[in-house]
């Protein structure tokens, strides 16, 4: 995992995450300020300290991976998954509220490209919001197993599109599939 560019990539990740966490702090503490421009200095100082601590914890728990995020693709990913979660909700609601249950549940094995690890987990988490699918584990050959509400739907196609988008965002790593 150690590569020549590890140190700058850690520094970059720390800066990015720290900025993000400080932004989160502003969200948390901000509503208490009657006037954002006159934010109490102590609040900001504590916020910086908290963001530093959060960054430290974050780097400790989730080591940064080399390679940079492509922001444009990230935007599209976020939008797609927001949209997918809406569609997913509507899909479930439609089935639940329909007078006759229209389900054909079953399993689907999907050989996902992200290797086991954070990215695979992220892929699993994101696709758990996608209509009709729920990742339930990994089979003996390392492929993801999904439980589907309705096997008649083109679930695998959707997953492939999600996967392509995700790889576009954070780059591809060598996979063992």
């Amino acid at each position: 995992m150690t590569r020549p560019d590890a140190a700058p990539s850690i520094a970059r990740a720390a800066a990015a995450r720290g900025t993000g966490f400080f932004g989160c702090w502003l969200l948390l503490a901000g509503p208490g300020w009657s006037n954002p421009a006159a934010a109490p200095v102590a609040d900001v100082v504590v916020g910086l300290l908290a963001a530093a601590a959060a960054t430290w914890a974050s780097l400790h728990l989730l080591a940064p991976t080399p390679g940079r995020l492509r922001l444009g693709a990230l935007g599209r990913l976020v939008l797609r998954f927001l949209w997918q979660s809406i569609v997913g909700g509507i899909d479930v609601a439609r089935r639940a509220l329909a007078p006759r249950l229209s389900l054909q549940p079953g399993y689907l094995v999907y050989p996902a490209r992200p290797p086991p690890g954070p990215r695979r987990a992220l892929f699993g988490a994101l696709t758990s919001l996608v209509p009709g699918t729920l990742p339930v584990g990994t089979d003996s050959r390392g492929a993801l197993v999904y439980h589907c509400l309705d096997l008649r739907q083109p679930v695998a196609d959707g997953l492939a599109r999600d996967e392509a988008l995700m790889i576009a965002v954070c780059g591809e790593e060598a996979t063992d599939v």
């Binding site: 979660s85 909700g89 479930v92 609601a93 919001l129 209509p131 009709g132 729920l134």
Partner: peptide, 11 residues
């Protein structure tokens, strides 16, 4: 579980 994780998040 599908019902649980999808619908109420949208709600």
């Amino acid at each position: 579980l599908h019902a649980l994780t999808k619908a109420d998040n949208l709600g």
